[in-house]
């Protein structure tokens, strides 16, 4: 065995021993519930798979390495900003509300960054994983927040949620961002939210992704969303609901003498038929209060360059290793008098 092959085998072995699911094509094409928080198929009991040990954030990052289903401080800025923006959209409703409930709160990183001092009198954080909700409490600095561990496709858990929310009077605001696509069925949740809107003065702001426009099939999404699915959802909602499209923007800014100055008045040029990355619907007594917002953040070009160069270098390196491995296997096959295998046989 030559040195290159030995190195390649060592590398494979090391990768395997880390017990880290690699972002390979096999995973992408595999069961959509692998590592996914919701859906009964993953673990049989509707709970998130918990094969990865370690701290909360490390666990999420290890299990969902590519699609950023959990937001952390290391999440790609584009994804983080668009998630934060959804909370900024909701901020005017949250400010001064009797109760703010965040369904699928995750680590709370985006909500904390976006909401700032916009806080409700009462905060309820709901997630499938208790560790995530605890992390969100810390991120939001809301020590008195109430947390609930709940599978939002489970009717018993939803009954607990309903009871928790109705413990206090005055209605409130419910944010439900990037949750329903992970649910085995979102119908019981939707029924609860519509009931809370109609009977108990709760306003819900809910988002779904535009999967139909993406080029990669997200294995963590149990339902596919696009304009057609959104139309299906909208027709189930109260007629006075509000719909919004979240549209990606590209931009550039000047830094003069090291200062970005006041770029807060971001101007977004309109396109005739913009394609949404996400769709938002709001329903309930305060839905009409939603107002358009936009956000931008300077790109970390240095980090992006480093990451892209690393990816290119890794790809070239592993392609070389693959070629060496293939030659080695063919050499073995020739020596064993076995038929040649593989594409380059």
């Amino acid at each position: 065995m030559n040195a290159g092959v030995a190195r390649a085998l060592r590398s494979c072995s090391a990768q395997a021993s880390k017990n880290v699911p690699c972002p390979t094509k096999a995973i992408r094409a595999g069961s959509p519930t692998r590592g996914c928080g919701y859906g009964g198929a993953s673990s049989g009991d509707g709970r998130r798979n918990t094969e990865a040990a370690g701290g909360t954030l490390a666990g999420y990052a290890a299990r969902v390495p590519e699609w950023q289903e959990r937001l952390t401080r290391d999440t790609h800025p584009t994804i983080r900003i668009e998630h934060e923006l959804r909370y900024r959209l909701t901020a005017p409703l949250v400010r001064g509300a009797a109760t703010w409930c965040d369904l699928g709160c995750g680590t709370g990183v985006a909500a904390a960054a976006a909401l700032g001092d916009a806080r409700a009198a009462r905060v309820v954080l709901v997630d499938l994983e208790p560790d995530a909700a605890a992390q969100a409490v810390a991120e939001l600095g809301a020590a008195r927040a109430e947390t609930l561990t709940a599978d939002l496709s489970d009717e018993t858990d939803l009954a607990s949620l309903r009871e928790l929310l109705l413990r206090a009077d005055g209605g409130g605001v419910i944010s439900c961002f990037e949750v329903v696509e992970h649910l085995r069925t979102f119908v019981p949740l939707l029924e609860l939210l519509i009931d809370l809107a109609g009977e108990h003065d709760y306003t819900t702001v809910l988002s779904v992704p535009n999967d139909a426009f993406g080029t990669i099939e997200n294995p963590y999404h149990l339902t596919m969303w696009g304009e057609g699915a959104l139309e299906e959802l909208r027709r189930m909602l109260p007629r006075d609901h509000v719909a919004a499209a979240q549209v990606p923007v590209s931009g550039s800014a000047f830094v003069i003498d090291g200062s970005a100055g006041d770029n807060s008045a971001l101007t977004v040029a309109q396109r005739p038929s913009p394609v949404a990355s996400h769709f938002i619907v709001a329903f309930g007594p305060r839905a009409a209060e939603l107002r358009g917002v936009a956000a931008a953040e300077m790109t970390d070009l240095e980090g992006q360059r480093n990451w892209e160069r690393q990816r290119e270098a890794n790809l070239a390196f592993h392609e070389e290793e693959l070629a060496e491995l293939r030659d080695y296997v063919h050499d073995l096959e020739r020596r064993l008098d076995a038929g040649a295998s593989g594409d380059d046989a």
Binding site: T185, F186, V187, L190, E191, T223, A229, E232, L233, R235, M236
Partner: peptide, 9 residues
Amino acid sequence: TMMAGALHA
């Protein structure tokens, strides 16, 4: 799922 939601509606 959508049909279930529609029937509830």
